[in-house]
Amino acid sequence: MLDRRRNTSIKTSIFAHCVIAFLVVPTLMVIPISFNDNQYLKFPPTDLSLRWYEEFWSNPDWLRATWTSLLTACTVTVLATVLGTMAALGLSRMVGPGKKLLIGLIISPLIVPTVSLALALYFFFAKLHMVGTWVAVILGQTVLALPFTVLNVHGSLQSFPATLERAASTLGAGPVTTFFRITMPIIRPGIVAGALFAFLVSFDEFIIALFLAGPGMTTLPVQMWNTMQLYISPTIAAVSSMITGITILAFVLMTAFGRRSKAK
């Protein structure tokens, strides 16, 4: 009996590890490739070199694209976090069937294929003569990032006792003070998680940026795409490695933050 259980657990464990490897290994493959001296994407690497990283940091096109991406992602993060938190606060106070409908509408960008959304946004902004503007990219990506902030903040509001806000109001705190002094400190983990997701959604986002961005507003994923159109350079591998690194770092920080606030 005991043996069989041990066998099962070993088999399960092997299977689970295979699945994890399948998910992670292709992504991690680019890291050794990026340090390869060879000018073709080759695995395993023949000689170690940092030339593709140097190529990235010395090319003004790559640097400009990185800067554009960071600026866009930060703006989207702020917009999506503020709007998402306000929406979540409103939703948490709602009752009745309207609430489910509204949540469904807000998370619909997660369900609709991004290409369809990008196309719809393209025609919408075309009517407003805004295609090719930075504002259009920002708004488009905010639509995509909003579900993450709303769901995260709404989730942390589920365990937030409503009487705390009532208590604060009897003690003399108005609604705005109550939000900043009581509600926000308590739901901060949800807000931070939502903001991080929003940042990553925008930083990775390709289709909307491709459809709506004008010349001179090339974001990093679009720059990668453009480069690959011409020739496959290992610089792509270097960029991918750096983006992956930043993403992992962001999640590690978030986990550490979550643990700290839980311990508190």
Binding site: P161, T163, L164, R166, A167, A168, S169, T170, L171, G172, A173, G174, R181, I182, P185, I186, K264
Partner: peptide
């Protein structure tokens, strides 16, 4: 509105602010 009424209220679930210590709660 409640915050302009100058009333004090004690709730069944205590409703203390979990992120503040006792003195900060009372000083709020």
């Amino acid at each position: 509105p409640p915050h302009q009424r100058n009333i004090g209220m004690v709730f069944q679930d205590y409703s203390l602010f979990p992120h503040m210590n006792v003195a900060q709660n009372v000083a709020f």
